Simulated assay, not measured.
Amino acid sequence: MAKQILIDAIRGKRTAKPPWVPYSGVHSAFVINEPADKFLKDPQLLAKGVVETARKYKADGIPLVFDLSVESESMGLEIKYWKDNVPSVQSHPLSDKTVEEAGLKVPGPGDGRWPVLFEAAKIAKPQLDELDCALMGLACGPLTLASHLAGVRIFTDVVKNKEKAHHVLDFCSRVVTKSVEMYCDMDCDIIAIVDPVASQIRDATFKEFVTPYCQDAIKIIHDRGKTSTFFICGDATKVLESVCQIGTHGFAIDEQLNLTFVRDLARKYGVGFGGNLKLTLALSLGIISPREDAIVSLAAGGTHGYVFAPG
C-alpha cells in the first residue's frame, strides 16, 4: 500500500512499481457480507466495507463509492436500488422539460445520500491513512449525468438540437463542479470525473460537449491541491487523444482498449493512465486467467505513469 506512489503515477511520473487500485464499488458490500442497497445508505457499513476491501486487496487507493446515481438521486430523480448491484436511474425529467421547468437545483451536502458519504469518509479516511491507501472520490461526468437527466435523447440532441444540449450540459457542469468540491471537503486524495458514455460520441462532439463542461470541476480539484483523473468506458479510441488533453493529471480506461496504444498516447501528453485488468473476461467469467491477464497488463503498462486496475 503506497498512496504517494499512486498519486505520482496518476500525475504521469515514474514510480518504483505500478500502484494498484481495485474499483470495488458494491463489491465492498459483498466483502462484509451486506446487501448493496443497505450498504450504500449506511455510513458505518460503507466505511467498514471500503476499509476492509482496501485491507483485503492491499490497495494503494480505493473509491469511497463507485455509484453514478448519487448526483441524480440528490436532485430528486427516481432511483431503483438492488441488493447485488449499483442503483439505476429510473426517471429522466429533462427528456421533455427544461432545467427550469423541471425545477432542478444544484444539490449540496445536505441532499440525497451526500450526508451518508460525508459521514462515511469521516470514518474511513483516518483508517485508510493508516493503511497508506488513498481515498478516491468519483463524480458523475457531465455527459453521463446529462443522459441520466434527459435520457438517451441527449445523444441526438448533441447533433440535432445543440442549443438544448448545451443548456443541459451547462447545468450538469455546475452539478459536477459542486460534486468535486464536496469530495474535496471530504478530504479525498484523488478525485475522478467518471464519464463512461463519453466514448459513444464523435471526437468533435466530445470536444464540444464534454471537454468544456469539465473545466470548472478540474480547476476546483487542482486549486484544492488534489489529484485529478478522468474515467471513460467502452471503445474510446476515437476520443482518447481528447481525453489526454482534457486537463486532468491522468485518465483510466476499460478492457476494450489496447493498453500499449493507451500507454503511448498517455506518455505523449505526459499524463498518467490506468487499467486494464479484464473485468469480464478474466475477473467475472474466468475465460482468461486473471493471473496471466495481470502479467500482460503490468508488462504493457510499465512503471511510468501507470496504475494497475480493472478495466
Rank of each mutant, 00 (worst) to 15 (best):
residue 277 L to Q: 05
residue 202 R to K: 13
residue 187 D to E: 14
residue 141 G to H: 10
residue 162 K to E: 11
residue 295 I to Y: 10
residue 57 Y to R: 02
residue 92 H to G: 06
residue 253 I to Q: 07
residue 95 S to P: 02
residue 297 S to N: 04
residue 238 K to S: 15
residue 9 A to R: 07
residue 245 Q to G: 00
residue 4 Q to T: 04
residue 58 K to N: 14
residue 172 C to T: 07
residue 251 F to T: 09
residue 161 N to Q: 10
residue 100 E to K: 15
residue 231 F to C: 12
residue 41 K to E: 05
residue 199 S to W: 11
residue 226 K to P: 01
residue 273 F to H: 00
residue 21 V to K: 10
residue 6 L to V: 11
residue 75 M to T: 08
residue 183 Y to Q: 10
residue 99 V to A: 01
residue 63 P to W: 04
residue 27 H to R: 10
residue 285 L to E: 14
residue 235 D to Y: 04
residue 234 G to T: 06
residue 30 F to S: 11
residue 237 T to C: 03
residue 146 A to L: 09
residue 79 I to G: 08
residue 153 R to Q: 14
residue 247 G to Q: 13
residue 81 Y to E: 10
residue 87 P to F: 11
residue 99 V to E: 05
residue 22 P to S: 00
residue 308 F to S: 03
residue 104 L to K: 01
residue 95 S to R: 13
residue 70 V to H: 08
residue 243 V to Q: 05
residue 310 P to A: 02
residue 11 R to D: 01
residue 47 A to V: 03
residue 300 A to R: 09
residue 107 P to F: 12
residue 279 L to P: 00
residue 160 K to E: 06
residue 147 S to M: 11
residue 203 D to C: 15
residue 91 S to T: 15
residue 75 M to I: 12
residue 303 T to D: 05
residue 15 T to E: 08
residue 186 M to T: 13
residue 163 E to D: 09
residue 41 K to G: 00
residue 57 Y to A: 00
residue 19 P to D: 06
residue 141 G to Y: 02
residue 258 N to W: 05
residue 133 C to F: 03
residue 67 D to S: 08
residue 222 H to I: 02
residue 170 D to L: 03
residue 26 V to I: 12
residue 271 V to G: 02
residue 272 G to H: 04
residue 204 A to S: 14
residue 245 Q to K: 15
residue 271 V to W: 03
residue 3 K to C: 03
residue 60 D to Y: 07
residue 89 V to L: 05
residue 60 D to T: 01
residue 15 T to V: 14
residue 96 D to K: 12
residue 261 F to T: 06
residue 36 A to V: 08
residue 48 K to P: 15
residue 257 L to R: 08
residue 169 L to E: 04
residue 1 M to H: 13
residue 279 L to I: 13
residue 297 S to Y: 01
residue 241 E to C: 01
residue 161 N to Y: 12
residue 254 D to A: 04
residue 239 V to Q: 08
residue 78 E to Y: 01
residue 219 K to R: 12
residue 184 C to A: 15
residue 227 T to S: 06
residue 231 F to V: 03
residue 74 S to K: 09
residue 114 W to P: 09
residue 154 I to P: 10
residue 119 E to F: 07
residue 293 D to K: 05
residue 17 K to T: 07
residue 283 L to I: 13
residue 176 V to M: 07
residue 22 P to Y: 10
residue 100 E to F: 12
residue 104 L to M: 04
residue 114 W to L: 12
residue 143 L to E: 09
residue 209 F to S: 09
residue 49 G to P: 02
residue 21 V to T: 15
residue 85 N to T: 02
residue 47 A to Y: 05
residue 77 L to K: 13
residue 51 V to P: 07
residue 290 P to C: 07
